[in-house]
Write a protein that binds this DNA or RNA. Structure first.
Ligand SMILES: [Zn+2]
Ligand SMILES: [Zn+2]
Ligand SMILES: [Zn+2]
Ligand SMILES: [Zn+2]
Lengths: 379, 379
DNA sequence: TAACTAGGTCACCAGGTCAT
DNA sequence: ATGACCTGGTGACCTAGTTA
């Protein structure tokens, strides 16, 4: 485009002198918000020229974008039609600052209204608030945020195991550990309430029950250390206890999963979002049948809304969203394995009848749940 | 898409209930049953938006539709106003699932009968039910549907091999594996019973015996992973064991075949139909002579009826049917190769006499079969 | 005639290409 | 690496034809 800017001859078809355009205001020449060259339309969400469009397409890959470096230390090189190719770092930075993002519009979707760019400000504000609430609630209710975990000191955990018999040992281990888990259910319920969805208490209880293992594991992610799993106060469940509780294979899988989460660079914010994604995960028909939610709101729609929000809020993180989705698939697999544990607890439920909340969340069936008032979801 | 969101009504908040429509206000907003966008009326038989209407119009052309591929292996991408352009395969699939069809209504007229055009509605309904039964029965009886396979976790398979001698090794491998195969025969028999054809138990047993290899391989399609074949519970038969069981060449052919099935974009529904086609495959004279069916119904007619049904139900998929027929030819070749395995099993039948059902289906001859009552086909 | 829809149109944009 | 240009899918809008 920059070859002969003066003449202003577009290769683009000059949009129709005679007929008036249906959309937007009468055609005015528009310019690239990155470099000021003539724009060829909206690309990746903003008015850009062909050059900036192609530039963004090539460099947006997260694994490659980190390699860009500013040509000086100031990171504020001016980006104009002439200088745009001088500093890739600052050009890319300006692309981001102007709001370019992949997948901002699905393929073939054309932005119609030129006037109000971006989304409705009220809607945007509502979304931002919703996101912020998730992040904040997670930070306050999760016992294993970065800052809280950093302060922990490992101490001894009393496993409660006295017997030699393998079965009894497992029951004893769960009798002790169930008390610890119970403690975490209240803050978790608070987090879920903070999501402010239209589900009633019974439905929330059912969804929590369905995803409790995945969510609990995610919350504990930073509690996994080399020798086992720390409780929120620092007491350490070593690998042997974990093996007794969950079975050797599953306990190792859990540890590996937590390592994977950390290794993918998930922040506390990310983990909070992932928990939200999981909670609103679409259910397969069998689960729907079994859970019998009163409110038949489309879970998938809520999940997508949150994921969209995540992308809007943290642009250029669709790679991260992808990673999250892989992790969620792993979680579903682990959760399926966990049903063996649940079966075990169900078989020996009489040993846990004093821990009512634990029983409710981990042991009782969905139909049990529907028959009572789940008031512990309410406080 | 809705060009003017003037009232600030966001599709996200809109309680999408595409099926129920409120009859109160004069202008009831209706939604696309494919993607949930605002509908502009009935198109090709169902309420859709302009986008899905144009999408269907463009892609229904039979020479082009078979080229659509899902962006991942699961073929169940969510289709929403946001995601609808991400996966053409799943969008098209959803169009078909929702009942879109060309020429369903005379030009310009709005009402539709969702049925095969031009035929007696009662007959059409009966056919639709028959199709639906095949699909549903396959979904419930096949252990390797998309959704079931997705949840599998690979675990260790005990091959049962202890010996060093090659022959003994193969016998040992089959002794273990035959138990696994036996488990799958009951659900398979259920599927075949669900076809409700006029054949008696003896004939069904003979047909099953004839096609057991092909049908079993098809059912296991999604069980093939990069390292081997998973059992319905996730235990993995690695390539080495498969090679011992079936011979190196055949086991590799089987794996290649399964890959081909997946690559051609066959859905669970398609696989269920293919199994039906195979089961009712016309027999060559030699087989007819050997099998001595009591009921001399024309198999080819049944097969054609199902294939016609397939085309009526999923219009414009004759390209897919063509692909299926190629795959079935491949299967016949593999099945012929498999007779070597059958010969081997027959030679060493005394090692499998405890597995009666396996023996009946894989080892005994048709004449053996006729001499006894095959009650295991009956439950 | 009024209500309705199949099919056509074309502005629009994601992604690829290739000379520079 | 860049960017002018190309290719091909998309969907809002239009039109012509059908039915009650
Ligand atoms: Zn520019
Ligand atoms: Zn710079
Ligand atoms: Zn639609
Ligand atoms: Zn798909």
């Amino acid at each position: 485009m920059s070859s002969m800017p003066e003449f202003g001859e577009f290769y683009l078809q000059e949009p129709i002198e005679g007929k008036l355009r249906v959309v937007g205001s009468p055609k005015t020449v528009q310019f690239c918000v990155v470099c000021g060259d003539r724009s060829s339309g909206h690309h990746y969400g903003v008015l850009t020229c062909e050059g900036c469009k192609a530039f963004f397409r090539r460099w947006r890959k997260p694994d490659v974008v980190h390699k860009l470096r500013c040509i000086n230390q100031y990171q504020n090189c001016p980006i104009t039609i002439i200088t745009r190719s001088k500093c890739q770092f600052c050009r890319y930075k300006k692309c981001i600052d102007q709001g370019m993002q992949s997948e901002c519009s699905p393929r073939g979707f054309q932005k119609v209204e030129v006037a109000s760019e971006g989304m409705d400000p009220i809607f945007a504000a509502a979304m931002a608030e919703k996101m912020a609430r998730v992040v904040k609630n997670h930070a306050t209710t999760c016992p294993f945020t970065v800052s809280k975990t950093r302060k922990l000191v490992q101490t001894f955990y009393n496993t409660g195991i006295t017997s030699d018999d393998e079965l009894i040992r497992r029951i004893e281990a769960w009798q002790s550990y169930s008390k610890e888990m119970e403690r975490d259910i209240h803050p978790l319920a608070k987090f879920i309430q903070g999501l402010r969805d239209p589900f009633g208490p019974a439905d929330r209880a059912a969804l929590l029950k369905k995803h409790i293992f995945s969510i609990h594991l995610l919350r504990c992610t930073r509690g996994f250390v080399s020798r086992g799993l720390m409780l929120p106060d620092g007491r350490l469940l070593n690998q042997e206890v974990l093996g007794i509780l969950y079975g050797r294979q599953l306990s190792m899988d859990m540890e590996e999963f937590s390592r994977k989460v950390i290794d993918s660079g998930m922040t506390d914010e990310d983990i909070g979002m992932m928990i939200t994604f999981i909670y609103y995960q679409p259910l397969n028909p069998a689960d729907q049948e079994e859970m019998q939610l009163n409110n038949t709101i489309d879970l998938e729609r809520i999940q997508l809304e949150y994921q969209q929000m995540f992308l809007d809020y943290y642009p250029l993180q669709q790679e991260k969203l992808q990673q999250m989705q892989y992790l969620m698939m792993d979680l579903n697999v682990l959760s399926a394995k966990h049903s063996e544990v649940q079966q075990f607890l169900r078989t020996h439920h009489e040993y846990f009848k004093n821990q009512e909340i634990f029983t409710e969340v981990f042991i009782s069936t969905y139909s049990n749940l529907r028959d009572r008032t789940p008031e512990e979801q309410e406080n």
